[in-house]
């Protein structure tokens, strides 16, 4: 499917999914991000229904996103979040899903490890570098840094005494 078709198809989900009634009126299931110039469809999903939507994105025959080829942990200054790049090896289309949380102290996002196994190490990496806790992850430990490391270096407010200042 092309990005346009994908967008139209995803919008039909709004009234076909069983978990849809839990959504308040003012929250869109998929907020298509028009302002991001990209060759792929960018959508944002609410954190509250994130897991169900992700599971459905893989399970649905029409979309069948089975290949999570990139997971990027993001720090947007105020909010933390994750960008998922999904591809369907069957249909060949690509969807960029993002989810964000405003809680900087204890950010929590449901894990997708049980949907795409590749998320196992990627989520550990994001936890390590950005401090986002993935609830339900089987072994959420620091992966690159030592267990006693303080802070999460990829956050924008992280400060390191040893960092070389640039002119």
């Amino acid at each position: 499917m092309t990005a346009e078709e994908l967008k139209n198809y995803l919008q039909t989900w709004d009234d076909s999914l069983e978990f849809i009634e839990e959504i308040p009126e003012d929250v869109a299931l998929f907020a298509a991000l028009e302002d991001v110039p990209s060759e792929w469809l960018n959508v944002e999903v609410p954190l509250s229904h994130f897991k169900g939507i992700m599971r459905h994105l893989k399970a649905d025959e029409k979309t069948s996103f089975d290949y999570l080829f990139n997971m990027t942990g993001m720090d947007w200054g105020q909010e933390l979040g994750v960008i998922y790049h999904l591809e369907s090896t069957r249909h060949g289309h690509i969807l960029v899903v993002r989810v964000r949380t405003a809680d900087r102290e204890n950010p929590e996002i449901p894990t997708v490890e049980d949907i795409w196994k590749t998320a196992h190490l990627h989520e550990r990496e994001i936890f390590d570098l950005l401090g986002i806790r993935f609830t339900g992850h089987s072994n959420l430990k620091r992966i690159f840094l030592t267990p006693d490391f303080q802070g999460h270096p990829l956050r924008k407010d992280y400060e390191d005494d040893y960092m070389i200042l640039r002119k």
Binding site: V36, P37, S38, N42, F69, N70, I83, H85
Partner: peptide, 21 residues
């Protein structure tokens, strides 16, 4: 320009991607 750019290439080991925000 402001935005997000993703480029995929095929290295000898597999898919390498650069995601620039």
């Amino acid at each position: 320009p402001k935005g997000e750019f993703y480029q995929r290439v095929e290295t000898a080991r597999g898919e390498f991607g650069v995601f620039i925000v």
